[in-house]
């Protein structure tokens, strides 16, 4: 009887352990990962998108991307043309006559690893979550594949893996990060347009970058607590 009572009690309380402890502030130790992307130095080679697919077992078909590069072309008549053929993996060809162009640039996109992430908020079972070091991850052994997180991400950074049948997304190459290596997309970026680092470390490259540049996040009005900071973000970019 007592054993059954303990069983029932622990069963009820276990999932709530976290809630009970939620009044404690998040740990101030350990890294808190953030990303910075410099639009003014991105040369649109698409190496990042290519490397990401190789590193992370992302299907080759052009419907699944953890990171991709967009080419924005603002025409003289104010029209904005956005392209991302195969996510930029095959590089970019210029498609607009130069005399019509007002302004043009490349924008690399990836998961924003939001600190108030709308995607992890809606997961019904606790299969996607923010890791203690601030990376939004998916537990592929636990995900039920409902697709709600894909709907909730304002940046289109998630997809359902067609073979695994679970949600899949950028992990900031968590397996590399934990070994002290840069994420694959950053490792192969020739112009250092992408950097990552510990936002809690005052001397880190990323904190220095943020100090020296006028950064902005995507869709700031959605208050997602995005930790992907852009330099050179203009009004056209969404």
């Amino acid at each position: 009887m007592a054993a059954a009572g303990t069983l029932v009690l622990s069963s009820v309380s276990r999932p709530f352990n976290v809630l009970l402890m939620a009044s404690d502030p998040p740990p101030e130790e350990g890294p808190w990962w953030g990303i910075a992307i410099d639009i003014t130095t991105c040369i649109g080679c698409g190496m990042c998108a290519r490397a990401c697919k190789m590193e992370n077992d992302v299907p080759d078909e052009p419907f699944y991307f953890r990171t991709w590069v967009e080419q924005y072309t603002v025409l003289n008549n104010g029209e904005v043309k956005i392209e991302s053929p195969n996510g930029g993996i095959d590089g970019f060809k210029s498609s607009v006559p130069e005399e019509e162009i007002f302004k043009t640039f490349f924008v690399p996109k990836m998961c924003n690893h939001c600190s108030k992430s709308p995607c992890t908020q809606v997961c019904p079972v606790g299969a996607t979550f923010e890791s203690p070091d601030g990376v939004a991850l998916v537990d592929e052994k636990y995900c039920i594949g409902c697709g709600y997180c894909v709907q909730a991400c304002p940046y289109g950074c998630r997809y359902l893996h067609p073979e695994k049948k679970v949600a899949d997304k950028c992990t900031l190459c968590y397996h590399r990060l934990k070994n002290g290596l840069a994420p694959a997309c950053m490792e192969v970026c020739p112009s250092k347009a992408r950097i990552y680092g510990n936002l809690r470390d005052r001397d880190s490259e990323i904190v220095r970058f943020l100090k020296e540049h006028d950064y902005q996040v995507l869709k700031p009005h959605l208050n997602t607590g995005s930790k992907l900071y852009y330099n050179g973000l203009t009004a056209e970019i969404s």
Partner: peptide, 21 residues
């Protein structure tokens, strides 16, 4: 669902912040 056999998880570990849970 992508993984219909895991549907029971929604009952055993419902995420308090999810409307679907």
């Amino acid at each position: 669902l992508g993984q219909p056999l895991r549907a029971y998880e929604i009952m055993i570990t419902p995420n308090g912040t999810s409307a679907m849970a």
